[in-house]
Design a protein around this nucleic acid. Structure first.
Length: 552
RNA sequence: UGGGGUGUCGCCAAGCGGCAAGGCACCGGGUUUUGAUCCCGGCAUUCGCAGGUUCGAAUCCUGCCACCCCAGCCA
């Protein structure tokens, strides 16, 4: 995998650390909590963490930060593993779990208690909030702050033994209730949760908080650069506090970068989960979802996602990235790598009156306009064809480069035809166009010098196959569905999915492998649905339309 | 009225005292059996604002403004 030596502030830090000898090797980690599916924002984090390790000859771990069993599940673990692999990354060694360090974390908690730097607090959640103060007022010390080491040790052991109920007691670090940084106001290290954990079962009834766990997990694994997003910046002093006050044998450092916010998209796990649970989308992997699995099903490729992550860069500024950049990345990949095919989405029958009824001609056409190695495919050509209804008008001005009554058009990869008359139903709708072929125009221009006005795609009525095509559009109509007071559900795009039940495809397409991407010429990029596509019932999803610069 | 951040073209983003890279988008033109691709060309006398230092500033200093994050026993 080519890795552009992405120059960003993190690489600068790493380069200096390597040069100064602060670290001998770069070790990063991607630490998802298994409480939802990975989305495009995670893809950026993955790209940053694995990318930096790779670019510097280092390693990157995959570690589940599973410290809150209430919200986590094995299903999420499996989806995350699959997504990271699909994106093309290989983590160092085995998959890690924060939960496998629970005993070590507990021992360190005991260590802090023994040093008089942590205490068991009996304040309930509401009281704790009151004691914590506000952004502008300092907090007050908990009345339980000065318990003896002996008592704290006893209480902590009993918390672990399950002698207290949830919410009754917590273990807190003794730092500074007057700190302007809320995170330093005696943060909670352990809380009681009498729920089974997906990895440790019922072994524990107390669980460490993110703050008490994350840095130590990094230290245990020898992480040199612990990279996270901006909202954790205020936690860094606490992260460092634990590393300094605990007998850990490695000194990881935390660095933060700006989160990815694509326009017309939401990346809040909570809200994505809501879309799934309320049935607004078909699931976490619905092609309209910004999840890795959704994008996969939509037809995005790992290469395109990685390219996009490279394009947007890694900085500490917080902005909205135009989804057009993501769309550019997938178009660029598919333009280069997707075989071409023809599919008529809105069929209108054309009868070539000069073409014999029984005749079936097999026309060989290239699978890609510039990559010969893609080979050729056979296109059956017959008297009756389907073209797209939008590609025919009874009359039109010169700017309309398609079929017009009395005019000529090139059938892609086949003959030039000329429209002679239209057949309408009782309501005046055009139901058929009668036309004739211009002789010797297969691969040649008309001998009379009259050039066709354009090129349109087609599929044989007799030899073509019916297909279901799902046309996806952006899920939200608002550029920032999440912004300020906006309720993201108010800007759901009612037309984000249009199912075309009777599209017509060239026969070879029925045998497409699931997940194979194609360019349906003049229409866009499509992918054979990962789950529903079958030769007997072809199903294609529109990944993204072709760039369209046609201005009326 | 606390603390932590960020402000360079519509969007992303280089730049780190020597006189504004690149990409996306957009706008022209050329090629084309995809109104696609490709190819050429255009697109910030200006870097949130105001002062100051300097021969010289987006880059240094001062002040101001805007936006983001923090008061979960979530991560």
């Amino acid at each position: 995998m080519e890795n552009t030596p992405a120059s960003n502030f993190l690489q600068t830090i790493i380069t200096e650390d390597l040069a100064s000898g602060r670290v001998r090797e770069v070790v990063t980690r991607f630490p998802p909590e298994p409480n939802g599916y990975l989305h495009i924002g995670h893809a950026k984090s993955i790209s940053v963490n694995f990318g930096l390790a790779e670019a510097n000859g280092g390693r990157c771990n995959l570690r589940f930060d599973d410290t809150n069993p209430e919200k986590e599940s094995q299903e999420y673990i499996e989806s995350i593993l699959e997504d990271v692999r699909w994106l093309g990354y290989t983590w160092d060694g085995e998959v890690r779990y924060a939960s496998s360090y629970f005993q070590q974390l507990y021992d360190w908690a005991v260590y802090l208690v023994e040093k008089g730097e942590a205490y068991v607090c009996d304040l309930n959640a509401e009281q704790a909030r009151e004691y914590r103060g506000t952004l502008t007022e300092p907090g007050r010390n908990s009345p339980y702050r000065d318990r003896s080491v002996q008592e704290n040790l006893d209480l902590l052991a009993r918390m672990r033994a399950g002698e207290f109920e949830e919410g009754e007691k917590v273990l807190r670090a003794k730092i500074d209730m007057a700190s302007p940084n809320m995170n330093m106001r005696d943060p909670i290290l352990y809380r009681i949760r009498k729920v089974p954990h997906h990895q440790t079962g019922d072994e524990w009834v107390i669980y460490p908080t993110y703050d008490f766990a994350h840095g130590q997990e990094d230290a245990i694994e020898g992480i040199t650069h612990s990279i996270c997003t901006l909202e954790f910046e205020d936690h860094r002093p606490l992260y460092d506090w634990f590393i300094e006050h605990l007998p850990v044998d490695s000194r990881p450092r935390q660095y933060e970068f700006g989160r990815l916010n694509p326009s017309y998209t939401i990346t809040s796990k909570r809200k994505l989960k809501q879309l799934v649970e309320e049935g607004i989308v078909a699931g976490w992997d619905d092609p309209r979802m910004p999840t890795v699995s959704g994008m996969r099903r939509r037809g995005y490729t790992p290469a395109a996602i990685r390219k996009f992550c490279d394009m947007i860069g890694t900085t500490r500024s917080d902005g909205v990235v135009d989804v057009a950049m993501l769309e550019f990345a997938i178009r660029e990949d598919l333009n280069e790598n997707a075989p071409r095919a023809m599919c008529v989405l809105n069929p209108l029958k054309v009868v070539l009156t000069d073409y014999p009824e029984e005749k079936l001609e097999s026309i060989s056409a290239p699978c890609h306009p510039s990559r010969e190695e893609f080979g050729q495919r056979e296109l059956p050509f017959t008297r009756e064809l389907y073209i797209d209804a939008d590609d025919f008008r009874e009359e039109a001005n010169k700017k309309y480069k398609r079929l017009v009554l009395g005019k000529r058009v090139r059938l892609r990869n086949a003959y030039v035809i000329e429209a002679d008359e239209v057949v309408k139903d009782g309501e005046g709708n055009i139901i058929e166009v009668r036309a004739h072929t211009i002789p010797n125009t297969l691969g040649e221009n008309p001998e009379d010098g009259i050039r066709p006005r354009g090129v349109i795609h087609w599929v044989s009525v007799r030899a073509g196959r019916r297909a279901e095509v799902r046309l996806y559009d952006r899920l939200f109509t608002d550029e920032a569905p999440d912004k300020g007071e906006n309720d993201f559900l108010d800007s759901i795009n009612p037309d984000s999915l249009t199912v075309v039940e009777q599209a017509w495809i060239e026969p070879a397409l029925a045998d497409a492998e699931p997940e194979q991407g194609y360019q349906f010429e003049r229409e866009g990029y499509f992918v054979a649905d990962r789950y529903d596509h079958r030769a007997e019932h072809p199903v294609f999803n529109r990944t993204i339309g072709l760039r369209d610069t046609w201005t009326n």
